[in-house]
Design a protein around this nucleic acid. Structure first.
Lengths: 144, 144
DNA sequence: CGGAATCCTCGATGATACTG
DNA sequence: CAGTATCATCGAGGATTCCG
């Protein structure tokens, strides 16, 4: 895996990783790490996790139903599943209030916030290059 | 919206990102843009695209078979499909050499490179927080 | 309200075979 | 070598129901 930080992506804490990565062997890293990174990427890079992550970062603390309402198109099943997995991974906290009717609050942990920050670059890229990609598709589809 | 490469954020200083978002229309953005961004995220955030993207960024130009060999576990079908979609989106170029046996080279476009750069923060996050996440999972699974 | 449990479907993916 | 085409599967995810 190449050092993705040849360019300068400046989260101050991430700049540290720059140095950290630079110490790696030139070729590829430990296959074990490779596997785990891919696994992790696979988990976080799914549609719902991403959307919940951004929503909670923006809104702070939200209840189960509120999240469900604001994440367009998610089913209750997937919402539960996504939230559980994120909780398991330490990305958010789940707080059950012993009242009737039940009230469960979800909020990002610092780890969750840092992941959201890490994704910032991707969101910005997507917004900035939306039309470029659209144009590329039109051009591609127009070829014989 | 700021360029991520110029953008300075701290993982623990999400309040800033808050402010950063605050420069956008207060509520949510244009639904059309929102939809397209989500669509785009959905496309690029799949396992194979991500892996091919990083591989090509690292290795430069590669042939079809070389990519297939280096992306562990990908089937020929998915490789073709992934490469086509990336080509369609303008992320890479496909160069057919009229020789026998056929030779087809793939390489990232500037757009592809910029996307790879945008993902840089995520890869770094994954590498840095691998063990934190692992620990969180163990803790979660150990609860009653 | 915030889920858990069940059933069911459909589309993504793999396996296989064929070709310029 | 670099695909395309076809068939088969299998599991992610939706719909529905029930519950503390």
């Amino acid at each position: 895996m190449a050092n993705p930080l040849e360019n300068r992506f400046h989260a101050d804490d991430i700049a540290q990783a720059d140095h950290y990565l630079a110490t790696d062997p030139p070729a590829d890293l430990d296959p074990r790490v490779e596997r785990l990174v891919n696994d992790l990427i696979g988990r976080i890079a799914d549609k719902w996790t991403l959307l919940v992550l951004e929503l909670l970062e923006e809104k702070g603390t939200l209840r189960f139903t509120e999240i469900g309402r604001q994440v367009e198109g998610i089913s209750q099943k997937m919402l539960t599943q996504t939230l559980r997995q994120m909780e398991r991974d330490g990305l958010l906290t789940r707080t059950v209030h012993p009242v009737v009717p039940p009230r469960v609050d979800y909020a990002l942990t610092p780890l969750g916030n840092s992941l959201s920050a890490a994704f910032c670059g991707v969101w910005v890229w997507a917004e900035r290059n939306l039309e470029t990609v659209e144009a590329a598709r039109v051009r591609f589809d127009a070829r014989d």
